[in-house]
């Protein structure tokens, strides 16, 4: 029983970070309506950046967020501006291929620059744990979780209260009308992509202390983000958050009770099952899902 609670707790903590990653994706999809196959690569870039900042400049990963977040914001904007925007009016097929091309290019760029080694960083508190009621909670995971929660709360407030946030919601709801109302949609896309990428990047920085980065890690996170987002309901923020927690739990549980080698297979199976049984996700979808066949 104690083991189970332990597994549950670790899963939830991990889930918080996954939620951050997935909310980034769902934000971008909800507003820009693009399914970015290179989403995980953003995470990978952030992780390598954090790694380099730590190894070469001894900057603590949590502190490096100050650099990583804006860096990824800019990268996100760049992707939107130079890769997505030019082909925005082409068919969905072309958009798939362009982001797949981006994914291949970035993954192999990482391979060229960093080789295939698995890297992680060791911080002074990486191994430390908190004992609470017989359960040991890993400190880096706890910090990551709290950080993620704070950021998600911040995003929520941004969407609800600020002008930019409201503009995002308007465009997500109905792009044409939003444009007629005076919202500069192209600029908003840039901001949204930047913001979604920044959040994903932060998730990467938060994860590095207790996981590895290697060139193909991006593909795994892309798929994971999609599993979460489909599970939670594409375009649905709250759904992405809860979905993230859920997947974190599943990964933790299947890692211990089934097999660590199969834990990814488990969530892909969940993905396929969700598409089979409840394509609109557990919590129902946001807008824009008819085009992709989820209803």
């Amino acid at each position: 029983m104690e083991l189970f609670i332990q597994v549950l707790v670790s899963g939830l903590l991990l889930g918080g970070v996954y939620a951050l990653l997935s909310v980034g994706l769902t934000l971008i999809f909800g507003v820009v309506r693009i399914i970015n196959f290179a989403h995980g690569e953003l995470m990978m870039m952030a992780m390598y950046l954090t790694y380099w900042l730590c190894q070469a400049h001894q900057i603590d990963p949590y502190l490096s967020v100050i650099i990583v977040a804006p860096a990824l914001f800019l990268v996100g904007m760049g992707v939107q501006r130079f890769i997505i925007q030019p082909i925005f009016d082409s068919s969905a097929l072309m958009k798939i291929f362009v982001t797949v091309g981006l994914f291949i290019a970035l993954q192999n760029l990482a391979l060229m620059l960093f080789k295939a080694d698995f890297r992680t960083i060791q911080t002074s508190y990486a191994m430390s744990t908190l004992e609470v009621g017989g359960i040991s909670i890993s400190v880096p995971r706890l910090i990551a979780f709290c950080f993620a929660l704070v950021l998600l709360g911040g995003l929520f407030m941004l969407l609800k209260l600020t002008l930019v946030g409201k503009a995002m919601r308007a465009v997500a709801e109905n792009r044409v009308v939003a444009e007629l109302m005076g919202i500069r949609v192209q600029r908003l896309y840039l901001i949204t992509f930047g913001l979604g990428s920044a959040m994903t990047g932060i998730a990467g920085a938060l994860l590095l202390p207790f996981t590895y980065v290697f060139p193909t890690v991006g593909a795994i996170y892309t798929l994971l983000a999609f599993v979460v987002v489909v599970l939670g309901g594409l375009g649905n923020m709250a759904g992405a958050f809860l979905g993230g927690l859920f997947i974190g739990l599943i990964e933790s549980i299947s890692g211990v009770y089934i097999s660590p080698a199969l834990k990814e297979a488990v969530y892909f199976v969940i993905f396929i099952l969700t598409l089979l049984v409840r394509p609109q996700g557990l919590f129902g979808v946001g807008k824009g899902t008819e085009e992709v066949g989820l209803k």
Partner: peptide, 23 residues
């Protein structure tokens, strides 16, 4: 289940399918 998906979702599902088999 999957033929009723369109566009990118179908693509993702197909990737997931191959990945499950690989593992």
């Amino acid at each position: 289940p999957l033929l009723r998906l369109r566009g990118p979702m179908f693509t993702l599902a197909s990737i997931a399918f191959a990945e499950v088999l690989r593992r």
